[in-house]
Amino acid sequence: MPRVHIPAPARDLTGGEVELELEATSVRRLIGALDERFPGFADRVLEDGELKPGLRVAVDGHVSAMGLLAQLEPGSQVHFLLAIGGG
């Protein structure tokens, strides 16, 4: 199962859980599964059905260009990060 890293500010929803394994084949489905288990999680990361402005999803350490559409493998590691502006 993919493993998702819960950002520190959202751990109030997960009872302090930092990392979870959840059955999901895409980031969108993963968020759905998280929200089912921890109601309110989707509101923290989504706005109008899309990732909140500036929020990014990293899969296996790389910020995915696909966002919600990124596909997940059984061992994928998922992080929620903010976009980083370079110089």
């Binding site: 950002p7 500010p9 959202a10 999680f41 990361v45 929020l55 929620f80």
Partner: peptide
């Protein structure tokens, strides 16, 4: 306060 529309946004994935 410079901008009266600014609120503290706790991130990532906070309130």
């Amino acid at each position: 306060v410079l901008n009266d529309d600014v609120r503290t946004d706790l991130q990532p994935a906070g309130e």
